[in-house]
Computed example of a mutant assay.
Amino acid sequence: MQYVIPVITLIVGLVGGFFIGVYYLRKQMEKMQSDPQMLQKMAKQMGYNLNNRQMQKAQQMMKNNPQFSGKKKPGGGKRK
């Protein structure tokens, strides 16, 4: 019993931290869709320098991709 509780606490903490991290990252990506300066800053941190055309294309891609927009795909996203 002395080892079981710390192991369970560690597992619950890791799982909870993972889901909180995913939620935070999705919120940041949603903010980037409407804020071109934030998207430009992220690109510069990754070593890219985007021109206006590339910025518009990146924003359009993020809006159309349900993974970044927080919207679910029709049909529940089940794979066949």
Rank of each mutant, 00 (worst) to 15 (best):
Q67M: 12
Y48G: 02
M29E: 06
M42A: 15
F68I: 06
N52S: 15
Q60K: 14
S34I: 12
K31G: 11
K27C: 04
R26H: 07
Q28L: 10
R79I: 09
P36Y: 05
R53F: 14
M46E: 12
L50I: 03
Q59V: 09
L50C: 11
Q37R: 12
K78P: 05
A43Y: 04
S69H: 03
M32D: 00
K71M: 02
A43T: 01
K72Y: 01
R26I: 10
Q59Y: 04
N52T: 07
K73G: 00
M38V: 05
A58K: 04
R26L: 03
M42C: 07
L39H: 02
M46P: 02
Q67D: 05
K72C: 01
Q45R: 08
M46R: 15
R53D: 15
Q56D: 14
Q56Y: 03
K73F: 05
K73H: 04
Q60G: 15
Q59W: 03
G76I: 07
M38P: 02
N49K: 08
M62E: 09
Q28D: 06
Q67P: 00
G47M: 04
K44M: 10
Q56V: 01
P66A: 09
M61G: 05
G76A: 14
M29H: 00
M42Q: 13
K44T: 12
M42S: 08
Q33I: 14
R26S: 03
Q67E: 07
K78R: 15
K63I: 12
G76E: 11
G77I: 02
P36N: 13
S69R: 00
K44A: 11
G47R: 06
F68R: 04
K31W: 07
L50H: 05
R53H: 12
A43R: 05
M46D: 11
P74K: 01
Q28H: 09
M42E: 11
Q28T: 09
M61F: 11
M62T: 06
R79A: 14
K57Y: 15
G76R: 07
K73W: 10
M62R: 06
P66T: 02
E30N: 08
M46W: 15
L25N: 13
M32L: 13
Q40F: 02
A43K: 05
K78M: 13
Q54I: 06
M32E: 01
Q37I: 08
E30M: 11
Q45Y: 06
Q45M: 13
A58W: 01
G47T: 05
M55Q: 04
G70N: 05
P74Y: 04
M55H: 13
K72S: 08
K72G: 00
Y48F: 15
K63H: 03
K71G: 05
M38Y: 04
G75F: 09
N65S: 09
A58S: 11
K63E: 06
L39R: 00
K41L: 07
P36A: 12
N64T: 14
A58I: 03
M46C: 02
G70V: 01
A43G: 08
N51H: 11
